[in-house]
Design a protein around this nucleic acid. Structure first.
Lengths: 135, 135
DNA sequence: ATAATTGCAAATGCTTTGCTTGTGA
DNA sequence: TCACAAGCAAAGCATTTGCAATTAT
């Protein structure tokens, strides 16, 4: 039983075979798969699982705080396991590769900007799009 | 002839009535309208303009660097006149209001982060989502 | 004149949903 | 058992596109 499954049973989320599969695939994922990719990986194990179920499961997991959804500039939503500590993303515009990074300084500045404008920050989105520097 | 129209004729973009209307509405806009809102404002002047044309025009203007497209967390794309100097946005999650801000420090840090990861920054996205602080 | 642009409606791509059947606790 | 979940196909939404008719230069 992986950690996602543990969280599910704790939260009283019914553990079906297909949810276990999505949980497993998300646990193993080292990238940021979209629903289609997720579905591909899941159906490699059980070909009967439908995309609709993957969509529903992914939404369920997201609402449970188990995974995170990202809408990068690609049209389709991409997912990753909810990380212990927040990070942001740099997207390689050529390869599509996604690199995670943490920068406390930027985080602080964002809070300050919001405060200065009279707002409490409830969410934010920071994405860098770049090209590899060849050396 | 407004400044968008000037840029168009300079760039050899054919100036049709509907494009003039979109240009006018965008020039007057003090907010960040989506295509539907744009269409509403345009058809208030000429009811025969179709949404398809607004979509096409908005894409044309964007590619010409005349306006900017933003995909906030709202489902639909929103537009603003391309600003002289870059700015980012804070979105009031309750009212939907959009506040523009500039923060050089954050900009610099983003460059640094990218560089440190071996990337040249070609684009970025910084959005703050917040709630008004009542005082 | 004529190549580009429009309007319309049909098509797209991602995502959601209604409904019937299947199933986990 | 039985409320909830899955599968399927249809529906939704924002956006794009093919095509015949119209228009700017």
């Amino acid at each position: 039983m992986n950690s996602i499954e543990k969280i599910c049973s704790q939260k009283g989320v019914r553990l079906t075979d297909q949810r276990k599969l999505v949980a497993e695939v998300m646990s193993d994922a080292k990238d940021h798969p979209d629903v289609d990719e997720l579905h591909k990986r899941v159906t490699k194990i059980d070909p009967k699982v439908s995309v609709a179920t993957v969509y529903r499961t992914v939404k369920l997991f997201e609402e449970a705080g188990i995974i995170e959804k990202h809408d990068f500039k690609s049209g389709k939503a991409r997912y990753e396991r909810a990380p212990e500590e927040h990070h942001d993303h740099l997207i390689d515009v050529n390869s599509g590769e996604i690199i995670e990074f943490v920068n406390e300084e930027i985080e602080k500045l964002q809070e300050n900007v919001a405060k200065k404008l009279g707002y409490k920050l409830v969410d934010h989105r920071l994405e860098l799009y770049g090209t590899k520097i060849k050396k």
